[in-house]
Design a protein around this nucleic acid. Structure first.
Length: 793
RNA sequence: GGGCGAGUGGCGGAAUUGGUAUACGCGCAUGGCUUAGGACCAUGUCUCGCAAGAGGUGAGGGUUCAAGUCCCUCCUCGCCCACCA
């Protein structure tokens, strides 16, 4: 079969695309704006098939929207700060800057090679001073509004490499670089108060048109728990241990109290040798041990007891690391009869248990399991006999407690002891008090005279230039902040900068933000559901509260793509040698075939995993070759009605499916149309051109070539999306499935618009139907207009 | 351990609100064309059955005139979170 020369056709088409490319005019008010965003890439060096999947499919949608008359913003940039640049720099002896910029250059060429229509005029790179200047400025705004603060916190530390590790570098509790078990070290760190936004981040999800499972993942991550704070007085003192519980109804079942190793009471009694030893052992426990070994350990704090808030009974106090210092109050009331963890700890240490909810499965003698369900209170003083759920808040009141809500989410630790990141725009006065760098000194540039080989300190501390800079600007005794910002901050606002990337006076244009926000559709990977997407939502809301952005949410629709696997069905990785190099496939089959293959591989907005199949690419190439061959049998006659119907049907399907990003079925609709066209002796030119228009977003190069070479005027991509008389979609006749008792007994063809009686009458002339009825009258007739007739006997 | 999602031909996957299960493509089979073909064309391709017909969407039950779709129980797989009191 004739096959087209994809190399020359695609090269020429890309030259035409480049010549015709005009930056999106964001101030254009004549057309409806549509902001289509995909997660900007980290410049790791090579585009892999996953990038293709993301960019090619969003490009199809961008092209489709333009044909529908939308003013489409489809930008690209680079998430250019990040750790791999440092590792690569150490490995290859280049600077992170050199390595990163070389990679970006390479990736730009690759992105062009797949025929995307991204708007390069809006390109940003987060490592550019002109970009991070505003990252820093926004950080200073958060600081000024008490949304950024410092406190001592544990960081991950690799004892072998003598370096602090970013969370991303810790894989299953070991250092990504050397495999050593990671320890914790306490350093003063910067945080953003995402917890202050926990409730809004959770509640505002309800109105977002996201897939429900993505919203659930964020809800779970935020983790709302309603409960109470209760105070247990420490005997013979006026001090209290405050605990958080979601089960105040079990208060009478408390047999001891547990504090976390970080709790003040534990530190206060570290003079007890057992306590000291336990705290020491806990500190030494590696991340991995904590994850793998869930056995409940802990020791009693001697000579300390607390009083039950209602009964006044004296209860022992333990320190145990199954209680987290960073959640709630860092202390819990233990109810071993009705809580799994307390049960395990009590059983191990032979502590008493007390059943207060019936029917509890635990008998005090056997102590084989605990009961966490609901029931009737017993052993609960005046509350005996009441339903636990109903009496819960009365118990809180009786205990002098207070109703409260806790969230699982923690404040966002944003400082990184790394080099290749945005410098935190902070300096310290001689007293050590932090001050933000004033706006006139931004960008607060990343120094270059830095030793970023790990030596146990933040690399920036080695910069003489940074020291001199601080002394020069702020005076003797002032010192710089040496940490850089988490790159998730860079990516928390990049979609705002795309609107106004060259602005030297503002981070973005308020006017354009009003016009273009929120982002209409954001496409990316599911791994970011509880990271980037949550960070960006928080950041955006914070800016909204500072009146810096006009919307309370950054993104309207969110589409998560699936994962392209290797030909062996495994995740692609260099190690398993199953990485598909897209450049090679494009070389052999053409970008259009690869684009169509990725579109056809499966539904985009579902968490599917799709193995790469080489024969799938050849199949798409075959499809495109058939489209090409069809161009050789065109006629100039008017399209007959049945072909118009084919086109109208295809148009309706492609449009509806493309809107939902179901590009696999959109393409199948085009294949159906092609099959019908091939039945014809010749295809009317106008009909063929319409077909090319429908296919244009998927295979932009070939369709453009064929459109031009068969007499089309201008680029196919500049032509409007075809429109058809809706009447073409309505057939003259309709096919009705006839069932008897729910079983299919035949189908009839009848004039469209026939009444139920007419359908029934015709159905009764079918032999199979009357046979199934066996002479009986149907007791009930169900008619689904235009579709189905069911005769119930 | 908890949460979420998914199980449909040999394979990727189709199937608006419950309304003809398996669209489209791959693979395979047979035939054609051909010196040849891993190219192309035609036909076929859920299972059983010569057929009429019957059965069939992980298993079992339920609701319904009608269930891949809704409800319950179970099994398997995937992803996320992992002592969050």
């Amino acid at each position: 079969m004739a096959t087209y020369d994809h190399q020359s056709i695609e090269k020429e088409a890309q030259e035409r695309f480049a010549a015709a490319a005009t930056p999106t005019d964001l101030s254009d008010t004549s057309r409806e704006p549509y902001y289509l965003l995909f997660e900007f890439p980290y410049p790791s060096g090579d585009l892999h098939v996953g990038h293709w999947y993301a960019y090619a499919l969003t490009d199809m949608y961008a092209r489709y929207l333009r044909m529908r008359g939308k003013n489409v913003l489809f930008p690209i940039g680079f998430d250019a700060f990040g750790l791999p640049a440092e590792n690569a720099a150490i490995k290859y002896g280049k600077t992170p800057h050199e390595w990163t910029y070389a990679n970006m250059e390479r990736m730009r060429a690759q992105i062009r090679s797949i025929g995307t229509t991204v708007d390069w005029s809006k390109e940003i790179a987060t490592c550019e001073p002109s970009y991070y200047r505003w990252t820093q400025w926004l950080f200073t705004k958060l600081f000024e509004h008490n949304l950024a603060y410092r406190k001592e916190a544990p960081v991950k530390w690799c004892p072998k490499d003598q370096t602090v590790l970013a969370n991303e570098q810790v894989i299953d509790g070991v250092c990504e670089r050397c495999g050593t078990e990671v320890e914790e070290k306490r350093l003063t760190q910067w945080f953003l108060k995402i917890t202050e936004y926990a409730e809004r981040l959770r509640a505002d999800l309800d109105a977002l048109p996201w897939r429900e499972d993505m919203k659930d993942a964020q809800r779970a991550w935020i983790g709302k728990s309603e409960g109470a704070k209760l105070r247990f007085q420490i005997a013979d003192t006026t001090d209290f241990i405050e605990v958080f519980t979601t089960r105040p109804d079990t208060l009478f079942g408390v047999t001891y109290v547990v504090v976390a190793p970080e709790h003040a009471l534990a530190l206060q009694h570290a003079n007890q040798s057992a306590v000291a030893a336990y705290l020491e052992a806990t500190k030494k426990k590696s991340e991995r041990e904590r994850m793998e070994n869930k056995e409940k350990t802990g020791v009693r704090i001697e000579d300390v007891s607390v009083l039950h808030p209602i009964t006044g009974e004296a209860l022992p106090v333990f320190v145990a690391d199954y209680v987290l210092g960073s959640y709630g109050t860092g202390a819990v009331m233990a109810v071993p009869a009705h809580d799994e963890r307390d049960f395990a700890f009590a059983q191990k240490n032979a502590l008493p248990m007390k059943v207060v909810i019936l029917p509890g499965s635990l008998s005090n003698e056997e102590k084989v399991s605990c009961y966490t369900g609901n029931g009737v209170l017993s052993n609960s003083g005046t509350f005996d006999g009441r339903q636990n759920t109903e009496a819960m808040w009365d118990i809180v009141q009786a205990a002098g407690g207070e109703r409260t809500t806790n969230y699982r989410i923690r404040d966002w630790l944003v400082s990184r002891q790394r080099y290749w990141g945005c410098p935190i725009p902070v300096v310290y006065d001689p007293e050590g008090k932090p001050h933000v760098v004033p706006a006139e000194h931004l960008p607060w540039e990343l120094p270059t005279d830095v030793d970023f080989v790990p030596n146990g300190k933040s690399p920036l501390a080695s910069s003489q230039e940074l020291h001199d800079r601080v002394t020069r600007i702020f005076g003797e005794g002032w010192t710089p902040e040496y940490d850089t910002l988490d790159t998730f901050i860079d990516s928390s606002w990049y979609y705002l900068r795309y609107l106004d990337p060259q602005n030297e006076h503002q981070f973005s244009s308020p006017e354009l933000m009003r016009k273009w926000l929120p982002v209409n559709r954001y496409s990316g990977g599911s791994e970011h559901t509880t990271m980037h997407l949550l960070f960006a939502r928080f950041f955006h809301k914070a800016l909204y509260d500072l009146a810096l952005v006009p919307t309370s949410e950054p993104f309207a629709e969110r589409f998560n793509r699936g994962l392209i696997l290797g030909t062996d069905g495994q995740k692609m990785s260099k190690r398993s040698g199953n990485v598909v190099n897209p450049d090679e496939v494009v070389q052999e089959y053409g970008a259009d075939a690869v684009r169509c293959y990725l579109a056809f591989i499966g539904p985009y907005n579902e968490p599917g995993h799709y193995p790469w199949k080489p024969e799938g690419v050849t199949a798409m190439r075959r499809f495109l070759d058939r489209v090409y061959v069809l161009s050789q049998s065109l006629s100039d006659e008017a399209a007959p009605e049945h072909l118009l119907r084919v086109l109208a049907t295809a148009e309706a399907k492609v449009a509806a499916d493309t809107e939902r990003f179901k590009l696999n079925t959109a393409l199948s609709g085009l294949m159906v149309a092609l099959n019908a066209f091939e039945e014809e002796k010749s295809v009317p030119r106008a009909a063929y051109h319409d077909f090319l228009r429908l296919l244009a977003p998927f295979a932009p190069h070939l369709t453009d070539h064929l459109f031009i070479t068969t007499g089309g005027e201008g680029s196919v991509h500049a032509t409007p999306w075809p429109a058809y008389d809706p009447a073409l979609l309505v057939s003259d006749t309709m096919t009705i499935v006839v069932q008897v008792g729910g079983k299919r007994r035949g189908e009839i063809s009848i004039a469209a618009g026939a009444s139920q009686d007419e359908v029934l009458a015709k159905a009764l002339t079918e032999a199979a139907v009357t046979a199934a009825l066996g002479g009986k009258e149907p007791s009930r007739v169900i008619y689904v207009p235009g579709k189905l007739l069911n005769l119930v006997v």
